[in-house]
Amino acid sequence: MVLINLTGIQPTGYTLLADDAQPKEGENVAVSVERLLGENSSFFNTAGGVGAIITTGTAFSDLDRIADKLAFAVIEFPAFGDGRGFSLAVRLRKDFGFKGEIRATGPVIPDQALFLLRAGFDTVEVTTKRKQAFEAALSRFPGFYQSDFGGQTSIAHARHTVEGLGVEGHRKAS
């Protein structure tokens, strides 16, 4: 597996915390949403950064109680077509103002690279075999019709500003 960096964020290194384990002092750990919902503040205080492992079956409203305590989030796609993962990222950014890293894992496909970026993901874990195709996909479209969480404004706006999207498209290479 390799990590594709979509936004240029500093990716978080972390340990997957076993079900019965406790975080070491200062350690970055990733933990299921179910477990996090039952943990108290000492858990969050001990760990360096706590990330939620979010399955696509998670209701966004469950994130309400933990979102502001999270350092990062890992959204697991069970299949590339499970579009709930995109809405979960949007919810984190939009409803909870989440600023940390959002990572995608699971069998997402290279042609989804820009969709992930635009929905608010920073990084995506992919098989080494797909790395090149992912990177190629990232530079494919100069602009889109929607303003997005990757920081690009929509074509609809660009049309009415002097700079427009620029020659190369205005997504800054990261």
Binding site: G81, F86, F115, Y145, Q146, D148, A156
Partner: peptide
Amino acid sequence: QWSTFHPEFSFL
């Protein structure tokens, strides 16, 4: 235009 390559609603 709004629905073309929508970042959130392309995998319904």
